[in-house]
Simulated assay, not measured.
Amino acid sequence: MEDHIFKGRAGIIGIGTSIPPNRLEQNEVFQRIEQSCKKDSDVVRWARRIFKQCGVETRYTCEPDFLEQAGACRYLPDHEGAVVPTTSERMEVYQRESVPLAVEAAREAMAEAGLSPSSVTHLVTVSCTGQFLPGLDTVLAKELGLSRRICRMPLIFQGCSAGLRAVQLAKDIVESNPSTVLVVCVELCTIHFQPPASREALFGASFFGDGASACVVSRVSDGREHVFMLGEGHSVIIPDSEEEMIWKVGDHGFDLYLSPAIPKLLKTFLREEVELLLGEQSLPALWAVHPGGRGIVDAVQEMFELKDDQVTFSRDILKHYGNLSSATILFVLKSMREHLIKQGTERAKGISLAFGPGLTAELLNFSYIQTAGKPFLAGKDAAYVQ
């Protein structure tokens, strides 16, 4: 690929992530669920099955209450009539805990990009697990020392696919006008855990975790190293699927419903959308798939006959951190980039996929380049170059 094609193109030049200090082992979470549902043997049996099959081993939470012994956790009490945290209490936790995580991830991304706060022209903040005013965007601008006149764009309550949507929005901004965009995603999913009232309610409790991620998107100059160049992308709403993923504000947190049929639904439409995105290009080597659950990664791998190492980044993030909603995709891309750097890969093309309420699918082409402007020498990665 000719280097001049990259001129004026947007790329991710810095990525940062952060997690809270409280680590949850999957078997410990199950014990709390089991104790909370001890009078409903059907729910307990279903929980045991889900927890074993979801692909998660550890997660992190901002709420130390989850480290209490089974039965002593306020979010998952073991007796009827127990008072669980109200939505307002959970929003207080969100406001207190989301900001430090978001600041840490943002500072890491800016430092990696070699970026001063005054250089940021746009701030895109993403979250679906809490709200407060003045919003996260306002607080971050102050904490990070950004301009008071910065253009702020909050993406609120859009679910797991919103992280990739924010990256695509940043790309469009940068390529329409010379800009530097800071994207910050923070999700505190665990503060919405509740005693499960149904089998379906167990899905969220089985694999969601807390964390934040950030990236800097700007036009890429020669000499910039280890960049994800951003290509074409699009969103699509899947018809007659709006009831498959539901996220409502309840009296005791946000009530989440996830249909077990979602992986099957992906198989009905995703191939057509990927073919539309790629056009005449062959399938890429790199796949950054949002691990919304083990079944989603399985479905993508099966559909496109991917090798295990092509989805290992998604599976590893799910295994060690769980599903972090909108923040997850940047965790996957960061892990992928670390591997490419270690392997000494010069260039490789890829595709990123994320899914959220709607059902909505986000798709984005990207290319990894080791050094912008450096002549490419054909070698082991030649087949993967755009």
Rank of each mutant, 00 (worst) to 15 (best):
G11R: 04
I15E: 09
T17G: 02
S18I: 05
Q31I: 00
R32L: 04
E34N: 11
S36A: 15
C54Y: 05
E57V: 06
T58L: 09
P64G: 13
L67T: 10
P77D: 13
P85D: 12
T86G: 13
E89K: 05
Q95W: 06
R96S: 15
G114F: 12
V120W: 00
T125W: 11
T129M: 03
L133M: 15
P134A: 12
L136W: 07
L140R: 11
L146N: 10
R148I: 09
R152V: 10
S161Q: 14
G163C: 13
G163S: 13
L164A: 08
I173P: 00
P178I: 08
T180N: 05
T180S: 08
V181K: 08
C189H: 07
C189F: 02
P196M: 05
R199I: 10
A201K: 04
G211I: 02
A212H: 07
S213Q: 07
S213A: 15
V216E: 06
S218R: 10
L230N: 05
E232Y: 09
V236C: 12
E242I: 12
K248Q: 15
H252D: 13
Y257Q: 07
L258C: 05
L258H: 02
A261P: 02
I262H: 09
K267N: 12
L277A: 10
E280F: 09
P284G: 10
G293P: 04
R294I: 04
Q301G: 09
M303D: 14
D308K: 07
Y321H: 13
F331S: 01
L333G: 02
K334F: 04
G344K: 03
R347C: 00
K349I: 02
G350T: 10
G358L: 05
L359S: 03
L359G: 08
E362T: 09
S367R: 01
L377M: 11
L377I: 13
A383I: 10
A383L: 15
